[in-house]
Design a protein around this nucleic acid. Structure first.
Length: 737
DNA sequence: GCCGGAACTT
DNA sequence: AAGTTCCGGC
């Protein structure tokens, strides 16, 4: 099953370094785990088991050994490895399944976001199904996290490599290579990568593979977020040839099956060989797990293929990319910084149009599992409506594993397939009313504790003591609960739907309407409304994405603004500064088209105006937009609200929540009863948090932007022109970098 | 076994 | 930043 070529890593090299994290040049433990998990050879050692995302280390010593080999740390043992694993708790990447020995569970939401911002969790819901392990079955969620993409699947290497040269096999190898130089000479890689060999030899297990599993490979097909269809991605990046395929066509559902194996990765941002350089900048800073205070790096755009010097993008692609990116931001609560690069671009808000939601049904229809045979998996799970939302745990191996499919529902997935922006034309009417609903109460971070079956001990989350590391880590997350698929699920659905419509505006410029709100959140005065609809968002977003520091900052002053008024400027705080950069008001854009980078200087520049807020332009295209929009349209500037506000609001909320949680967390000391209470309340909290992130059901209507898909040609042209311009600009900027 | 602090390494 | 190593405590 594995292709020889792949030798191993399913993940493209760049996948390993999602963030710029300098430090982590090498493979990260969670990636490593994922790798093992996807290989049948290692099933004896470690395998998916239980709930979605849950895996069991069957042979701790062996896993440790493998890890040690990979890292060239011969002294590695399970104790150490487990320590590393525990650090993930704070990062929310992983959590322990209590009561089960050697059993941990991934928080795919987190992982995905971090690594693949492009992937839409949103639709998927932001929910990445948490539990869904990458299953071979395509079915699971649409989004499978571990993108395994074995090379086979992906063949992408070749195929994908887009013009830009996506990731070359070489690169991958190199990556691996890095690992290998252990003293002993045994290349670690070999063990793992060769998988067959290594593992096989050792364990002799490949048998399993039998067909189904197809090894990780098959299983994993990539999941790309529906939002971004593969196509989109490909296109963006120069995609493979899946040309025709409109996915849509595939099932009637259309939605998506990915014709081929798509892996999420296909998109690798890495430009060819040079990729490495690109790596540095994470796709989105926001994503970074750690709070970096400074914006040290520029956000993704840099990474984005488009930017890459190598590539040239066409406007359309760029547009898509941006939108996708922006969406991610919104959906996931990414830092607005991400948009710095594109000052003039309006960030589309995901609104979830009802119509979009509909799409699910169709999807559902599609198979839950996608047949791998045909396509890779794009399966999205579709609708969640009924109870089906859950994905199956994908076991890496196909069938055999599921001990139980527990899962309850994690709805998450929403896959909404359809909505990719890409398919503009295609988007069929999704009729199904998809509802996202959430899931069961999320267990949040506290889940771990909550689970306490046996252990009375509450783990403290990290915040408490002050170890540096802790603090940093803890910060990060603010709030998310791991398990909560729900959050993602709910959110995602909506989001996705919305995205479809909106996102692609022909023009690409979304319009936002802002209205002042006073009440909802005390803090924020301004509300942005989604013109098209506001769904409250139930979607959950990943709050974690937000960097903590913001939260903190927010605490101090969250009230910056007066109702309705925007103040973008005043915030003294350093943090604020960041925001500022991000949010800076954009220079007044010319109505028609604003040049993308008007102000761009260098990245560093103090501020380039980000057009975070967009006023509604008088564009005609809006027909699509909901009436509300129209109405809003009338109001010009007053309505414009800086995204900043919006974000702040969220942040504030998150922060608050976090604070409260943290408080509780911090107080490890509290009596059991207290804890209990806390736990319970946590559940709520988490939910809220989720809500917050996403859209807070209550409040904030997302910014609406115009998303008429069918835009007039004129718009297109304009957009194109802009994009071109932008592209050019980016190129220039990159050079500097 | 698991947890998490602390110091240290890359 | 992301572990690695060591370790006391439950």
């Amino acid at each position: 099953m594995k292709t020889p070529g792949d030798t191993g890593f399913a993940f493209p090299e760049w996948a390993y370094k999602p963030e710029s994290s300098p430090g982590s040049r090498q493979i990260q433990l969670w990636h490593f785990i994922l790798e093992l998990l996807r290989k049948e050879e290692y099933h004896d050692v470690i395998a998916w088991q239980g709930d979605y995302g849950e895996f069991v280390i069957k042979d701790p010593d062996e896993v440790a050994r493998l890890w040690g080999a990979r890292k060239c740390k011969p002294q590695m043992n399970y104790d150490k490895l487990s320590r590393a694993l525990r650090y993930y708790y704070n990062k929310r990447i992983l959590h322990k399944t209590k009561g089960k020995r050697f059993t941990y569970k991934f928080n795919f939401n987190k992982l995905v976001l971090v690594n693949y911002p492009f992937i839409d969790m949103g639709s998927t819901g932001g929910s990445v199904p948490q539990s869904a392990p990458p299953v071979p079955t395509g079915a699971g969620t649409h989004f499978r996290f571990p993108p395994s993409t074995p090379s086979e699947v992906l063949s992408p290497n070749e195929d994908l490599r887009s013009p830009g040269g996506m990731f070359s096999s070489v690169a991958r190898r190199m990556a691996r290579g890095s690992v290998s130089d252990c003293s002993d000479g045994t290349s670690v890689n070999s063990e793992i990568e060769e998988g067959n060999t290594g593992a096989g030899e050792e364990r002799g297990e490949r048998a399993v593979s039998g067909g189904g599993g197809a090894g990780g490979g098959a299983g994993y097909r990539s999941i790309i977020h529906p939002r971004l269809s593969h196509e989109t991605l490909f296109r963006m990046y120069g995609g493979p040839g899946n040309p025709a395929g409109h996915p849509g066509s595939r099932g009637h559902t259309g939605h998506r099956i990915h014709p081929e194996p798509l892996s999420p990765f296909p998109v690798s941002p890495l430009p060819g060989p040079g990729g490495a350089s690109l790596l540095a900048p994470p796709l989105s800073p926001a994503l970074s797990m750690t709070p970096t205070s400074h914006l040290a790096y520029t956000p993704s755009p840099t990474l984005s293929p488009m930017l890459g010097s190598h590539f040239s993008f066409n406007p359309e692609d760029m547009k898509r990319y941006l939108q996708a990116h922006t969406q991610s931001v919104y959906n996931y609560g990414l830092s607005p910084r991400a948009f710095l690069q594109y000052p003039n671009i309006v960030i589309p808000q995901p609104h979830r149009p009802a119509a979009d939601k509909a799409g699910l049904t169709a999807e559902r229809g599609a198979t839950e599992r996608v047949e791998r045979a045909t396509t890779a998996g794009g399966g999205e799970r579709g609708g969640e409506r009924g109870g089906d939302r859950h994905h199956h745990p994908p076991l890496a191996h196909s069938t055999h594993h599921h001990p139980h499919l527990p899962h309850s529902a994690h709805p998450h997935s929403h896959s909404h397939p359809i909505h990719h922006p890409l398919h503009l034309g295609e988007e069929p009417p999704h009729m199904s009313p998809f509802k996202f609903k959430l899931q069961p109460p999320p267990l949040g971070r506290k889940q771990r504790e909550g689970q306490i079956q046996s252990k009375p001990r509450q783990s403290s989350l990290s915040s408490g003591s002050g170890s540096g590391s802790m603090s940093s880590t803890s910060g990060l997350g603010s709030s998310l609960s791991f398990g909560s698929d729900l959050s993602s699920a709910s959110g995602s659905g909506l989001i996705s739907a919305s995205s479809s419509t909106q996102s692609l505006n022909s023009a690409g410029l979304p319009k936002i309407k802002v209205e002042p709100i006073s009440d909802i959140e005390s803090e924020e005065e301004v509300e942005v409304t989604d013109i098209s609809d506001e769904d409250p968002d139930e979607r959950d977003e990943e709050f974690e994405l937000f960097s903590p520091r913001h939260f903190r900052a927010c605490n101090h002053h969250h009230h910056h603004h007066v109702n309705g008024t925007v103040t973008t400027q005043h915030q003294p705080h350093p943090d604020e500064d960041l925001d500022e950069d991000v949010f800076k008001t954009p220079a007044p854009p010319p109505p028609g088209l604003m040049p993308f980078f008007t102000s761009q200087h260098t990245q560093s520049n103090t501020h380039r105006g980000l057009p975070t807020l967009k006023c509604e332009p008088p564009e005609p295209a809006e027909s699509n937009t909901s009436p509300s929009q129209t109405a809003s349209a009338g109001a010009p500037q007053t309505k414009c609200i800086p995204l900043k506000l919006r974000f702040k609001r969220r942040w504030s909320e998150d922060q608050r929540m976090e604070a409260s949680q943290e408080e509780s967390d911090d107080k490890k000391v509290r009596p059991e009863e207290e804890r209990e209470r806390q736990r319970q309340s946590n559940g709520q909290m988490e939910i809220e948090e989720d809500g917050t992130g996403s859209g807070e059901g209550e409040s904030p209507p997302p910014l609406a932007y115009e998303g008429s898909i069918a835009t007039p040609l004129a718009s297109h042209s304009r957009a194109s022109a802009e994009l071109h311009r932008a592209t050019a600009q980016l190129s220039l900027e990159n050079k500097d970098c």
